[in-house]
Amino acid sequence: MSFKINWDALGIATSIACAIHCAVLPLILTSLPIFGTNIIDNEAFEYFMILVAFIIGANALWHGYKRHHHKTSPYILFGIGILLLLAKQLWHEWQLWFLVPAVIAIVYAHFRNYQLCRRANHCHTSDCNH
């Protein structure tokens, strides 16, 4: 039995986890500082999450580009999403205005990459995106 990672699914999950962290966590876990834990508005943690999303996303998109479809549109969408995540960090008072389109762009980039991999002429097996 062979274990293969669906990098696009992992990229989508990472993007959604980032969105949940940024949008929902402050509303639910406002008591964390009482216990000495502060991941809300923790700049190092925020940049770490962006880095993780970038590494996983870039790997997923590279695999799809190189082995299956040779289209740059997923990379462009992904790049826009990452830039919006970085803008969210720079202009913190506008973070939700940057976060929503960032997550949409990144998730759609992975979805588009997945679609293009599936549509590739040589792609007829279930392990096409691995």
Rank of each mutant, 00 (worst) to 15 (best):
H21A: 03
F78H: 05
Y108P: 06
A87W: 01
C117K: 08
G11W: 00
N42G: 02
I76F: 03
A58L: 13
S73G: 00
P33N: 08
N113L: 14
I80W: 07
A109N: 06
L85F: 06
I20Y: 12
D8W: 01
L29P: 00
R112I: 07
I55F: 09
W62A: 14
R118W: 07
V107I: 06
A13I: 01
A19Y: 04
L51W: 10
A105P: 11
A53N: 12
Q115I: 02
L83W: 01
G64N: 10
H68V: 10
R67N: 12
N59R: 08
M49C: 15
I28W: 05
W91R: 04
L96K: 03
A44Q: 07
K71L: 10
A13Q: 02
A60P: 00
L32A: 09
L32W: 13
K71Q: 15
Q89G: 15
P74Q: 06
P101Q: 02
F54W: 05
N38Q: 14
M49E: 13
T30Q: 15
Q115M: 05
H69E: 06
A109C: 07
A23E: 12
Q89F: 07
A13F: 03
N42P: 09
H63M: 14
I55P: 02
W62L: 13
R119H: 05
F45P: 05
S31R: 08
G11R: 03
S15N: 12
I104V: 14
H92Y: 09
A44K: 08
N113F: 08
Q95C: 09
T30G: 15
A44T: 13
I40H: 03
E46D: 15
P26Q: 11
W91K: 10
W91D: 15
Y65R: 05
L85H: 01
N59I: 13
C117I: 08
I50N: 12
A9T: 08
A44C: 03
W91T: 12
L51R: 05
L86F: 10
C117Y: 04
V103C: 11
Y65S: 12
G79H: 01
V103R: 00
N42C: 03
H70N: 12
L86D: 02
G81R: 00
A9G: 11
G57W: 01
H69W: 04
K88N: 06
R119M: 10
N38A: 12
P26H: 05
L32Q: 08
F45I: 06
P26I: 09
G64L: 03
A105D: 08
L86S: 10
Q115E: 13
I56F: 07
